[in-house]
């Protein structure tokens, strides 16, 4: 599997888009630090960007890479390699390459700024952890969609819709239902609703760590009230891990049954 991972990784690493993605984060990091000249504020701004952007880039790259590497996949399928190995290797190759762009792109400016010596290092670390989780989750989700759709345009469309739904529409529906069912106890509903959306979950994970109650929002507040900060962090982290495994597992399931 390591061989497949390596080839996918290098294939992506050689493409222009990985560098653009990396340079974007590099620039973003420097600009934010320059404008805010305050680590904590920069981290909050960055959070809002990361929880929307990493899923989007994960989705787009996942779909794009999957469709464009179809020849490579078919070539591998005729070789003595397990199917699961081929798809797991490619998935990990894409997700690792994107995560490295994120880690290096943001890591470099923040390290130069001296995040290592500051108390914000753990908050910054949590931000990168959440971004990495989201990358892995959304790459896996988008490969699921591409495996199910032979038609590129359709696959691309569904993948973008999924991202749009989880990043934007989900919150809207959630807010509306909070208003509509105002008279009912909504704590458990809120907990469930936020666990079903990895983007919400990552936001909560970061905010619990930042410990700024004003920014927690309704879901975060319920989380911290229900579980406390420590337990809330552990639970949201665990659910994110589950969120990473389920789409990867289902990707292998679908790939195992597919005809090429």
């Amino acid at each position: 599997m390591i061989k497949i991972l390596r080839y996918s990784f290098y294939d992506l690493a050689r493409s222009r888009w990985s560098y653009i993605y990396f340079l974007f984060y590099l620039l973003l990091g420097f600009v934010l630090l320059f404008l805010n000249s305050n680590l904590s504020k920069a981290i909050i701004t960055l959070m809002n960007i990361i929880i929307v952007l990493t899923p989007m880039i994960g989705t787009i790259f996942g779909v794009m890479y999957f469709y464009s590497s179809r020849e490579f996949t078919e070539l591998l399928l005729a070789q003595p390699i397990k199917r699961g190995t081929i798809f797991l290797g490619q998935y990990l190759g894409i997700a690792t390459s994107l995560s490295l762009s994120l880690l290096a792109g943001l890591g470099i400016p923040f390290l130069i700024y001296g995040v290592w010596q500051s108390s914000e290092i753990w908050n910054f670390g949590m931000l990168l952890v959440a971004g990495t989780f989201l990358t892995f989750i959304f790459v896996a989700l988008s490969i699921n969609i591409s495996l199910k759709n032979e038609n590129k345009i359709k696959g691309f469309g569904y993948a973008i819709l999924l991202w749009l739904f989880l990043a934007v529409i989900y919150d809207g529906i959630f807010m509306i239902s909070l208003v509509v069912f105002d008279d009912y106890p909504l704590d458990q509903f809120t907990l469930l609703a936020s666990m079903l959306n990895p983007i919400d979950l990552s936001r909560i994970l970061i905010l619990l760590k930042l410990d700024i109650s004003a920014l927690l929002g309704y879901t975060g507040a319920v989380f911290s009230k229900f579980f406390g900060t420590g337990m809330g962090t552990v639970i949201s982290f665990t659910v994110l891990v589950i969120w990473t495994f389920i789409p990867a597992w289902s990707m292998l399931k679908i790939a195992g049954k597919k005809d090429f």
């Binding site: 020849e71 490579f72 078919e74 005729a78 003595p80 397990k82």
Partner: peptide, 17 residues
């Protein structure tokens, strides 16, 4: 999958990366 070590396959359409 191991049995594929004993097979050489030439696909109909030569599609490569």
């Amino acid at each position: 999958w191991k049995y594929r070590r004993q097979i050489g396959y030439l696909p109909q359409i030569a599609r490569f990366p």
